[in-house]
Computed example of a mutant assay.
Amino acid sequence: MTTSVMFCYAHPDDETFLSAGLIRTLSDEGFPPALLLATSGDAGQKNGAYRDWTREKLGTLREQEMAAAAKILGIADSRFLRLPDGRLQETDEAWFVQQVAEAINQVQPSAVFTFPPDGGNGHQDHRAISRIVTKAVVEGHCSSVRQLYYVFSDSLAQEGRTPAVTIDTLPLWPIKADALRAHDSQIEAIKRYFGDLSDCLPERRYEAFALAWESGAWWPEISETRARASLGLPHPVIPEQSG
């Protein structure tokens, strides 16, 4: 079976923070996914040696860091819209939807992954790309897409939603840690989120994703076995209770 998956996020490193384990698993199964990033991350935190860099220089660096992380994770295709970092909500919506739809249609994925509506952490750029990707998919601008997944979040749990796919990153932690290290300009923020990257039992060990939309239906009931099969993933492994 052949499948095609595309991840649509706001900044370089979003893909590794939220879905490195899933991305690498897809690649290892023979289905390397594509990635669309709305910005180059030029307004990101400036850590250490990068503290005095201009936004233009930082954006160029973060695209280079993204290329290194993509190689580690097995991403087949990385592309940038290069929209203003931190100001995605100001972008003309119709034009933004068109740009996202064109990028998706060039890849022709059957499934698209993005942030939940609240962005997961309330970040305005995260909320904006979630809204635009959702409109592009559910309004019929991307004919190949049959499934839309949201990164699972506390807000989705509070709505009574449940993950369709959960990835235990522990077996893949050395790979995820290497991809995180590739985003060196953001390493201080990364370590605040994940802790010491050398730990063998990582903080935020699991990645989880909810199936928000499938073939015209919102929030369809789906087993993890069927969700994984539709994406080309191996059968689910029951997570350990500790960790």
Rank of each mutant, 00 (worst) to 15 (best):
T2S: 04
S4H: 04
V5P: 04
V5G: 00
F7T: 03
Y9F: 14
Y9P: 06
A10Y: 13
H11N: 15
P12C: 09
P12M: 13
D13S: 15
F17H: 09
L18I: 06
L18T: 08
R24N: 04
R24T: 06
D28P: 12
E29D: 04
F31G: 00
L35R: 05
L36W: 07
L36P: 00
L36Q: 09
L37F: 11
G41R: 12
G41Q: 13
D42T: 13
Q45W: 09
Q45Y: 11
N47T: 10
Y50M: 13
D52S: 14
W53S: 06
T54A: 02
R55I: 01
K57Q: 03
K57S: 03
L58H: 12
G59C: 10
R62L: 09
R62G: 08
M66G: 10
A67S: 12
A69M: 07
I72S: 00
I72E: 01
L73V: 03
L73T: 03
I75K: 07
A76M: 01
R82T: 02
R82A: 03
R82V: 01
R82L: 01
G86R: 14
G86D: 06
G86P: 08
R87K: 13
R87E: 11
L88D: 07
Q89P: 02
Q89T: 04
E90Q: 12
E93H: 14
F96W: 05
Q98P: 01
Q98N: 13
V100E: 02
E102R: 15
E102T: 08
A103F: 11
V107F: 13
Q108F: 00
P109Q: 05
F115M: 14
P116T: 00
G119D: 00
N121D: 07
G122Q: 03
G122H: 04
H123S: 11
A128I: 12
A128D: 13
S130A: 07
R131N: 07
R131I: 02
V133E: 05
T134P: 05
A136M: 03
V138Q: 13
G140M: 05
V145N: 01
Q147S: 12
L148G: 06
L148Q: 08
L148I: 09
L148E: 03
L148C: 05
Y149H: 09
F152E: 07
S153L: 05
S153T: 13
T162F: 15
P163H: 06
T166S: 12
I167N: 02
T169G: 12
L170K: 15
P171D: 00
P171E: 01
L172I: 04
W173E: 01
P174R: 09
K176F: 05
D178A: 12
R181P: 00
A182Y: 10
H183Y: 12
S185A: 09
S185R: 13
I187S: 06
F194T: 02
D196Q: 10
P202V: 15
E203G: 08
R204S: 11
R205G: 03
E207N: 15
A208Y: 04
A210C: 14
L211H: 10
L211G: 10
E214I: 07
A217L: 14
W218K: 10
P220F: 05
E224N: 09
R226P: 00
R226F: 02
R228W: 05
A229T: 10
L231N: 04
L231I: 04
L231W: 08
L231P: 07
G232M: 02
P236M: 10
S242Q: 15
